[in-house]
Amino acid sequence: MSGIALSRLAQERKAWRKDHPFGFVAVPTKNPDGTMNLMNWECAIPGKKGTPWEGGLFKLRMLFKDDYPSSPPKCKFEPPLFHPNVYPSGTVCLSILEEDKDWRPAITIKQILLGIQELLNEPNIQDPAQAEAYTIYCQNRVEYEKRVRAQAKKFAPS
């Protein structure tokens, strides 16, 4: 494992614990031996107030490669969400998460999670990743928002 990646992720964890947006979660997972795995984080993004996503808490896994922060983490909703920019596998399609697009090593975990929260309610229809959600979003916004509200209710924190 890269010392650069681990040191950056340790800084990220410290900064997150000191200050993070209300309702968001970002925690490194534990290895079988109980030690912390900084390369694999369990996160959760709350649906934004005043949107059909409100009330939901959407679980996301963030996986970092050894060359982080040169390369972005892979962000994957578990379980996958109904959304035009979420692949059926759950992987998020967002330009700041793509090395050859808008990724920059200075982007923080907090910025990534806030960017994904923004994307939930403002899909990028130029870059669809899920045919069904994309089609319904474009053709029947009322039905799309109904499905999103049902999903938010399903993923409401207990």
Rank of each mutant, 00 (worst) to 15 (best):
E98T: 08
G23L: 06
K30V: 10
A133F: 06
I96K: 04
L113V: 12
G47S: 01
P32R: 15
R104H: 01
C138I: 13
N124I: 03
T135D: 07
K146N: 11
F155K: 06
G3V: 10
S95P: 01
Y137A: 01
D66H: 12
K49T: 08
K14Q: 04
P157H: 10
P28S: 05
A156R: 13
I136W: 13
P128C: 08
E54R: 06
A5V: 13
Q117M: 08
G90L: 02
D19G: 07
K153Q: 09
P84I: 14
T29M: 12
G34Q: 13
N124W: 09
E122W: 08
H20F: 04
N40G: 04
F58H: 03
N40S: 14
L63S: 14
A129F: 00
P73V: 14
R141M: 15
F64R: 01
H83W: 03
K18W: 02
F82L: 05
F64M: 15
T35P: 04
N121M: 12
I109N: 02
V92F: 04
D33M: 05
I125R: 03
P79Y: 15
I125V: 11
L120D: 00
S158M: 14
V142E: 15
K14W: 07
Q151C: 07
P84K: 00
I107Y: 06
I45A: 03
P157V: 04
A156I: 08
A10C: 01
C138Y: 00
L113E: 02
N31Y: 13
L9D: 15
W16V: 02
L97P: 10
E122V: 13
T35I: 02
K154V: 14
I45Q: 03
P21E: 01
P84S: 01
G47L: 01
S89A: 13
R61F: 11
G50W: 05
L9Y: 12
R13F: 02
A156C: 10
I4Y: 09
K65P: 11
F22H: 08
N121Y: 09
L63K: 13
K110H: 09
S71D: 15
S71W: 14
P69L: 02
P46A: 09
F24M: 10
A133Y: 06
A133W: 03
A15M: 06
A15H: 11
N124A: 05
Q117N: 10
A129R: 02
F155N: 15
L119M: 10
R149G: 06
K110M: 06
K14I: 09
T91W: 14
G3C: 12
D102L: 04
N40Q: 07
I136S: 12
E78Y: 07
A5T: 09
E132P: 07
E132C: 09
R141N: 13
